[in-house]
Design a protein around this nucleic acid. Structure first.
Lengths: 155, 155
DNA sequence: ACTGAAACCGGTACACC
DNA sequence: GGTGTACCGGTTTCAGT
């Protein structure tokens, strides 16, 4: 369990990040190896948690109409337990696909996906602004997705 | 090519979104079907583009140290071709994993992943602020990732 | 650590309902 | 649109280097 990655491991990660269905033989050829070491490395990457899981990436525009909104939330008082309360509530919400604690003008940044503006209004009013200790909530509505990689930039 | 999803399709999407390696037999049992229709539906979901691709989700904290920063960028003049120029430049940058055109106080929201604060400083200075027509650039540094699903909320 | 071959099992095709 | 069977190919194992 050496917990470190060499150039081959990183190349494998890059390939699987782009297309998890790439077959071991092709990866092997690309690397000038045979399938076995490729497979062993992949298993190691999985077992040691470098690869968390495999996911089907869904084209959300095709599945159903939706809008994406970034919400910037500030608390009135940054007491530790109030922050935790807020975060525990927020992370349960299906509409909130991402939530980060940030430094800057506001405390939390949320990425919210909802059906339409109406749904966002309800969401912001009843699920965010109604939580205790909320200061300000600002919103930035996504007009266009220019780039949206869920991948980590391995160079 | 009917381009519409029934409840079974959506359930399959939800399962594959969570774990793309779920075997057809298990999906079939969960749905009370056999492998064949499950396989046919998956193929249809792939071919019609509901599933864009499959991706290995990488644990970025294990692979290497990095920080995530949200950058909020405003242009000085919102002329159409200047926006396009900006976006075409920005989307090439490996550090920029996400880029959205948004409505609100600023024009673009970028998610940036870099090694450290130093790297972010260089990035902001030489790759963003140096582009023509840039107005303001504000940054929110991620202190903690509370939730980070790359998944579309299928209910 | 990698090679090469063999075994296993899930994905895929097909005949039928 | 579904079932059950049979085949094929990729994954996984293993003996040898």
């Amino acid at each position: 369990m050496q917990e470190k990655l060499d150039a081959i491991d990183r190349e494998i990660l890059k390939i699987l990040e782009k297309d998890a269905k790439t077959i071991a033989k092709d990866i092997a050829e690309h690397l000038g190896l045979t399938k076995t070491p490729v497979y062993e490395r992949i298993r190691r990457l999985e077992q040691e948690g470098f690869i968390q899981n495999y996911s089907a990436i869904i084209n959300k525009d095709k599945v159903e109409q939706s809008i994406t909104v970034f919400s910037f939330v500030s608390l009135e008082a940054q007491k530790g337990h109030l922050m935790d309360d807020f975060l525990n509530q927020v992370k349960q919400l299906d509409e909130v696909t991402e939530c980060f604690v940030v430094g800057g003008e506001f405390d939390f940044l949320l990425k919210v996906i909802v059906k339409d503006l109406d749904a966002y209004y309800s969401f912001a009013k009843s699920k965010i602004a109604s939580l205790p200790n909320i200061g300000a909530v600002k919103s930035a509505f996504v007009l266009k997705e220019v780039k949206n990689e869920n991948t980590f930039p391995l160079l």
